[in-house]
């Protein structure tokens, strides 16, 4: 279509510079101070967890000093716990486990949720009915208790803990995905793709899902935070991998001694709090950065 009336062509504004969606979101995100603060905290925590253990080489499982030494009274700056283990070493090493479980559980949550929601929203009818019943079933299951049962019966390994968290957390992602699919399914560009012979798989994964992605990315980011809290809760109840040090486990281990050493519980709790707070800030920032585009599109 190159036939444009000369008069209209002259008055038309110059075409806006093409900016990729990712860049647009980043530009919005960058202006959000709290989200940027969250991002920096998060990156710092990840960096410390990655390289910290090789820089600060105290073994977090070994007795290094008098048990229950308060912070600042020995070379171990954050003090020691009831077994005389260095708290700082525990914090630095525990981050890996906590964040790994959080990410792994969140990936599972999103994977199950998006698959179920996409199938339900795309196929509709009986498939939708059945899958929504299943979703409802998992909503009725009391999530912490169910995860407790799974971990207790199958053993507290890192994989089992992550799977248990994933299994109880996916329902809201599924509902959101379904709603997005129901909306996008009826769009003209989807119909156009179908009319040129695109199969179901292509429509679901290549056409609809990318368009449904923005709110799902936000949910995925936030679910890392809730998975970390969940893991902390389970390990507080004693359901943690005996071979792995995590922040939640440190709190659980030190709880009986809070009257003698408040620091043993305070520091790991602060670490969890900061991490989840940073993730929430990033998630909220992403949401704000993505939402104006959603409004524009409708």
């Amino acid at each position: 279509m190159t036939l444009v009336e000369p008069s209209r062509a002259r008055t038309a504004p110059p075409p806006p510079k093409a900016v990729s969606p990712g860049r647009q979101v980043w530009q919005m995100f960058r202006r959000n101070h709290s989200a940027m603060a969250g991002l920096f905290i998060l990156l710092a925590i990840i960096l410390i967890s990655l390289v910290g253990p090789s820089l600060y080489t105290v073994n977090p499982r070994e007795m290094v000093w008098m048990p229950l030494t308060p912070p600042g009274q020995s070379e171990y700056v954050l003090g020691t716990d009831y077994l005389g283990r260095d708290l700082l070493a525990g914090l630095i090493n525990g981050g890996r486990v906590t964040i790994t479980i959080g990410v792994f559980a969140a990936v599972l949550t999103v994977l199950i949720g998006v698959t179920v929601g996409a199938m339900a929203g795309f196929f509709g009818g009986r498939v939708d009915n059945l899958l929504m019943r299943v979703t409802e079933f998992f909503q009725v299951l009391p999530n912490l208790l169910f995860a407790m049962v799974v971990v207790m019966l199958f053993g507290p390994t890192l994989v089992n803990i992550s799977v248990a968290i994933g299994i109880v957390s996916w329902t809201s992602t599924a509902r959101l995905t379904r709603a997005e699919f129901l909306r996008i399914r009826e769009m003209d560009y989807v119909k156009a793709e179908r009319s040129i012979g695109a199969g179901n798989a292509r429509l679901i994964w290549k056409v609809i899902l990318p368009n449904a992605a923005p709110p799902l990315i936000v949910v995925a980011a936030l679910s890392i935070g809730s998975a970390i809290l969940f893991e902390a809760g389970l390990s507080f109840l004693g359901l943690s991998d005996p071979n792995a040090m995590s922040w939640g486990r440190m709190i659980g281990d030190n709880r009986p001694y809070i009257l003698d050493s408040s620091w043993g519980v305070t520091f790991p709790g602060l670490a969890i709090f900061l991490t989840v707070l940073a993730i929430s800030l990033v998630g909220d920032g992403l949401n704000d950065a993505i939402n104006p585009k959603l409004r524009q599109r409708q």
Binding site: G225, L229, A232, G233, F236, G248, I251, R255, I258, S262, V265, T266, G269, I272, F273, V276, L277, S280, L281
Partner: peptide, 18 residues
């Protein structure tokens, strides 16, 4: 609400005890 969502509930409890 941000803080309430980000802190482990059992940790808040322990802090309140302290």
């Amino acid at each position: 609400s941000l803080a309430g969502f980000s802190a482990p509930v059992f940790w808040i409890g322990i802090m309140l005890i302290l």
